[in-house]
Write a protein that binds this DNA or RNA. Structure first.
Lengths: 125, 125
DNA sequence: TTTGTGTATTAACACAGTTAGTACAGTTAA
DNA sequence: TTAACTGTACTAACTGTGTTAATACACAAA
């Protein structure tokens, strides 16, 4: 479920938080279901509980999970989050299009690539 | 020409190198023209010469500039580089399309956004 | 009461980025 | 030749961040 990439320059807590964000936004993790405890996940990943704690804190700050003292951490509802994430992605599109234009990539070439990539993914469905 | 963003999490040498990459790929900096010396640019940006040295080293490693001992650093020809950069950008498109699909952004919505952003930029020309 | 939760705190360590200072070799022009 | 530039290399010190380690405490559930 969670893989740590030690070659990745980003910190572990950030990798973990981002991975959970994906799983939550995709709906793989059911709202209100319980996450592994800080200590258990730390054991499972062979890292320090503090690092998991930090990842969970980030997720809570972003509204992805909620935590109940003494009981555990739980997945939050994701309806609103999905919308936020979409807007984030469209902002990234904007930035990428800008860069592509700068490098002289034609609009048609760009659109072709988008279509190609979009349909390529359907093989997996 | 070069601006350092201290709020940016990336290191200074990387910001500088990337900024030069942009300027070189866009052709703003003429091939074979001379860059500021390590010491001068360091003074201008109020940072340490070692940091500039590192940025220049990165640029040389990537083929963006070439350096001549005792004379200075010079802009490399950018023809081949532009092609490489384009391929990099198309890889980013692939990744972004994947994320957009995951979040349930329709192909049409995505294409609309690309067209919109592509044409929006033309206002500046 | 015991065990498992989240949470907070402190100390120590590692690593990367940055600064500072020095040194040396090559180029250029006076 | 000399002086003033260049690039390049090296070491030492400082800083911030990520990570680990070890505790401690409050709350919940069996």
């Amino acid at each position: 479920m969670i893989l740590i990439d030690y070659k990745d320059r980003r910190p572990i807590y950030e990798q973990i938080a981002e991975r959970f964000q994906e799983l939550i936004l995709k709906g793989v993790l059911e709202p209100d279901s319980q996450l592994l405890s800080v200590r258990n996940l730390a054991m499972e990943l062979s890292i320090n509980p503090n690092t998991i704690q930090r990842a969970y804190a980030e997720l809570e700050r972003g509204g992805y999970i909620y935590s109940v003292k003494g009981r555990g951490n739980f997945i939050a509802a994701n309806d609103r989050l999905v919308q936020c994430k979409r807007e984030e992605i469209l902002e990234e599109v904007k930035e990428l299009v800008r860069k592509a234009k700068d490098m002289g990539v034609s609009k048609e070439h760009l659109l072709d690539k988008v279509v190609e990539c979009y349909e390529e993914g359907n093989k997996d469905d």
